[in-house]
């Protein structure tokens, strides 16, 4: 009951938030929603199923280009958005094949290679992607007379989809899929020994993780109204990794906390790009050295400590 109240208050705050934000801050919060969606995907692939993906920016990019290019062909946003996810998901399933054979560092390198290759394709195949200049003039959607063209309306659309993405990830994690993902991640031999197909679930872990990233990409393109390959480099993949590692891998709250810190942190601290990259790299090392569970552990401790306090007052 208290939990529902808590989440209700949070959602209410997010609903009234735009009234208090300037244009730029509104954009940053909107961007955070997009990045959380992608990070949720990576968390499913890496956090739960333990399959290293350092090419989530590719999946993100495929979603974004699907949106940008098909919108230009006059397709409807509402049709393209699921397609962005599906295209990225199919690509993810293909990328999952190396994961059947390779683990950890090999998979890390293979997926880095994939990211570098997709980046080159985006840069070079200008007939399709527009090359280094990318795709511009991307429009925002509307339903009937309700238009999402203004920043504030698009914010609300993103908010709704952001909440849906979180609910969907909670659903998946608590389903038998989620349990099988964790099983494959924890002990593949035991999983196979109990009839859990590593083939199915590894590909699925990549496909589902890529689906979320693709949808994120589909939302990203109209937010910026312009996309170019720079937004989908290996370093962006690294940022997604940083998000879930800082937040907490294999936890629902992980990507949310992580994305908030990674996207909003630099804006709040008003740091130069290189400066915050140093800080985040350092945090990555420190988290691995001292707090492998991520910042969500801090939340857990708070949650434990607060009831104890109330109890002691009695």
């Amino acid at each position: 009951m208290i939990r529902w109240l808590f989440w209700g208050i949070i959602v209410a705050i997010l609903c009234v938030l735009p009234r208090f934000l300037g244009d730029y801050t509104l954009y940053v919060v909107s961007l955070t929603y997009v990045y959380v969606t992608v990070a949720i995907g990576l968390n499913l692939t890496l956090g739960y199923a333990n399959q290293v993906s350092l090419c989530h920016a590719s999946f993100f990019g495929i979603g974004a280009y699907t949106m940008g290019l098909l919108l230009a062909q006059g397709w409807s946003f509402w049709l393209i958005l699921p397609l962005s996810g599906i295209f990225a998901g199919l690509f993810g399933a293909v990328i999952g094949f190396p994961a059947l054979k390779w683990k950890d560092h090999y998979l890390a390198l293979i997926t880095i290679a994939i990211n570098i290759i997709t980046f080159f394709v985006m840069m070079q195949e200008s007939w399709l992607t527009g090359g280094p200049t990318g795709v511009s003039g991307i429009t925002r959607p509307s339903i009937g007379s309700l238009s999402f063209t203004s920043d504030i309306n698009y914010y609300y659309l993103l908010l709704v989809l952001f909440i849906l993405a979180i609910l969907a990830s909670i659903w998946i994690v608590n389903s038998k899929w989620g349990r099988a993902f964790r099983a494959i991640g924890l002990n593949e031999l035991a999983a196979r020994g109990h009839g859990i197909s590593s083939f199915n679930y590894k590909l699925l872990a990549f496909a589902v993780g890529a689906f979320f990233a693709g949808v994120g990409g589909g939302l990203f393109a109209p937010l910026l109204r312009y996309i170019s390959p720079d937004a989908f480099t290996f370093f962006i993949s690294l940022e997604f990794l940083i998000m879930i590692v800082i937040g907490g891998m294999g936890r629902i709250e992980g990507p949310i906390i992580g994305a908030i810190i990674v996207v909003m942190g630099p804006e709040v601290l008003r740091m130069a790009e290189a400066a915050y990259l140093i800080v985040y790299s350092l945090i990555l090392i420190l988290v691995m050295l001292f707090m492998r569970g991520g910042l969500v552990i801090v939340l857990d401790r708070l949650r434990e400590a607060i009831p104890a306090r109330i109890g002691s007052r009695r």
């Binding site: 998946i172 389903s175 038998k176 899929w177 349990r179 099988a180 964790r182 099983a183 924890l186 002990n187 031999l189 035991a190 999983a191 020994g193 109990h194 009839g195 859990i196 197909s197 199915n200 699925l204």
Partner: peptide, 28 residues
Amino acid sequence: QLFLEMTVFENMLLSVQEHRGTLLSRLF
């Protein structure tokens, strides 16, 4: 060979879940 970071009960259910239904039905 167990799933050490899962509960005993989750371990038990994992050992049987793939014997029922289809891949898609296991999501729902």
